[in-house]
Nucleic acid binder design. Sequence first.
DNA 1: AATGAATGAGCGTTCATTCAT
DNA 2: TATGAATGAACGCTCATTCAT
Lengths: 216, 216, 216, 216
Amino acid sequence: MRHLPLSENYASFSERSRKAVSDILISARDVLVEQGYPRLTMRNVAERAGISVGNLNYYFANKQDLLRELLQAIIQGYVEDFSQIIHDKDRAAIDRFESVVRFIMGDLETRETTGFFPALWALANHDPVAAHEMDRIYDVEKGVLADLIAEVRPDLSEDQVNILALFVMGAIEGQTVFVGFKRKNSELLPVVTNAAAFGFRRLVSEIDGSEIARLS
Amino acid sequence: MRHLPLSENYASFSERSRKAVSDILISARDVLVEQGYPRLTMRNVAERAGISVGNLNYYFANKQDLLRELLQAIIQGYVEDFSQIIHDKDRAAIDRFESVVRFIMGDLETRETTGFFPALWALANHDPVAAHEMDRIYDVEKGVLADLIAEVRPDLSEDQVNILALFVMGAIEGQTVFVGFKRKNSELLPVVTNAAAFGFRRLVSEIDGSEIARLS
Amino acid sequence: MRHLPLSENYASFSERSRKAVSDILISARDVLVEQGYPRLTMRNVAERAGISVGNLNYYFANKQDLLRELLQAIIQGYVEDFSQIIHDKDRAAIDRFESVVRFIMGDLETRETTGFFPALWALANHDPVAAHEMDRIYDVEKGVLADLIAEVRPDLSEDQVNILALFVMGAIEGQTVFVGFKRKNSELLPVVTNAAAFGFRRLVSEIDGSEIARLS
Amino acid sequence: MRHLPLSENYASFSERSRKAVSDILISARDVLVEQGYPRLTMRNVAERAGISVGNLNYYFANKQDLLRELLQAIIQGYVEDFSQIIHDKDRAAIDRFESVVRFIMGDLETRETTGFFPALWALANHDPVAAHEMDRIYDVEKGVLADLIAEVRPDLSEDQVNILALFVMGAIEGQTVFVGFKRKNSELLPVVTNAAAFGFRRLVSEIDGSEIARLS
DNA sequence: AATGAATGAGCGTTCATTCAT
DNA sequence: TATGAATGAACGCTCATTCAT
């Protein structure tokens, strides 16, 4: 599983405390991913982390705080992954674009991703903190895609590039609930990935700027 | 808002009962959509419906039953909509395919759709009833897409058609959390729809069967 | 099972009503005997009787009333049985006494008796109605025993006879919870009955009046 | 009142916890004895103990657990009393037997005994835990009686001794509901005790083994 | 007579949170 | 830091009872 990087809020903490906080966040993530948000209770997290509820409340004064830090930590992990995608300048931009698409889709089949993101999306509908963290990760993901699309299509405006990136990102993320971990068609992820790669490649390469704005 | 068709379980009920059940389901849907699943409590639903908890339990013996009927009713509404998509034989299959894509995407911006589906996806990760209802609606949606794709591309095998339909469906549904109701980029739904229409049209028209199975 | 004689309260009722009341009481008795007092709910009784709760409340305005009538009816059945014990004047009084002891003990093994009386005793500790009905049945039972003891022992005072009858009655009833229906030692009822018959016969025949009042 | 010995489950608890558990069990016993089993609710117990329902559930995770511990504790108190009955070897076995009979009967008039045992008997008809605890106490009581009877009557087989002990025990316990605390004839307990002592003494001394097996 | 619909109180239980130690 | 103890509100659900039809 992805590691859980602590936010800078904990920079000044002792190593022991950082370990405790980290253990708690890992436990919370596991509960959330394995049992869903309604079962993400302070008790369950404390039990999973092997500490008392009182102690959990010492590290996280309330559930809101825990949830915020949890979302930040999980999302930071994904953000760091995206940031590490190498922009190998030797390869054609469109090929690097396809690589990124395939990379993101490859992640959908992990238990963590399938368990976490639908919960995040649902939460973001009513929880501002979740909505904010959701924006954070997808701004990064969209930025990665937009950079590559801009390189492939210097003729497009920034807005047009942005729209394409937004669509491609949503289209990829949407696969989660159909071919994700233990989902009904999870064995089809590889071939769906092929369809995605082909489709987005064509789309990005061939769409005319005017198509984006045209009336239906 | 979409109406909530009662299941045939209630066919034999009195008009008064059907009205009460319908009111309850509408209240439950509103609570779910507006406040999210964790707030979907028997008390909240009863209060919203203007009845007592006792009476709510009279109509739905337990929360599981209420949730099942709610999911069935909501999903039946979507299923009926899909079933009504006219297969206008005068138009080319690829044009009808694009119409369907635009129709589905047009639905994403409704409050109900944006509020409901992420909740359903999250629920389906841990609740078998939700998982089953989710399968039901997406089998229909995928079937609609697959029929059209098969008509456009008689050269593809059933499996290949199915994979394309699965991808297109996931790609459309994924837009929900980015351009849905009150989401950050909801004003971009029309142009993203254009990108989707263009991209899927190209994909379906031009992909070679061998592309689907090729190694990455 | 013993029949359930309706009290004279229902003498003026139509045959149809008497049938309904009787059905309800039988259902209530069955629920009480089979499931215990905590499960003797209006709903359970109505369901068992195949009528609605509303209708049950039509016949018995509240649970107290139902319970009172139920206790009266059940106990009346036992009372009538006791009353039918033939005082065969041809046999010796002590033999008839033993017959009555054996008769009462023979009843303990029925499901109804084992299920009903402990519930009645527990109820009588806190419910005046139950206490009153309990007095009623045991006054009769004690009277039967006392009459025979008085015949066996004309030398004893009425008080002394009464005390002996009270003791014998309690001693018999107490067997219920040890050798009653499905109780741990229920297969020993016949031999325990022998011990009882022998013991009470000796006791009644041989005890001296002065023994009853002596200090321990 | 009898003290309530905590089971060894609580041996490792802090003094404060043991005090709390003990207070709760005492409160629960009082509620059960004074108000009966249907009123033995978590809320009533908590209120009686002067704590919150939440705290009650902290000590006893559910009502079943509370009931089990309560029954165990109450019964352990009686068991310990029985175990302390001195087998004074200087006196004749039959005299010691009579003493035990008188000792047990002397207990019937306490509020606790009269309130508790009928509730236990009723409960045992439908609750396996109650049935088990009931077996536990009566196995001890029967053992005490059987030991003495065997000493009095070395000519009887173990089975025969057991049957006599079973009968005597039931006969004693049965007095509870007639001459127990605040029962109709409670003032007669002393004289009934005399009758019992005399009757059982004669029975045990004089019954012939063959009487136990004879047909009625 | 009989039903179905409705209520409000109370049930056992879980929850996030607080606090003394 | 860490625990165990405590709270009060809310949870899903059942209950006896009422009422319009």
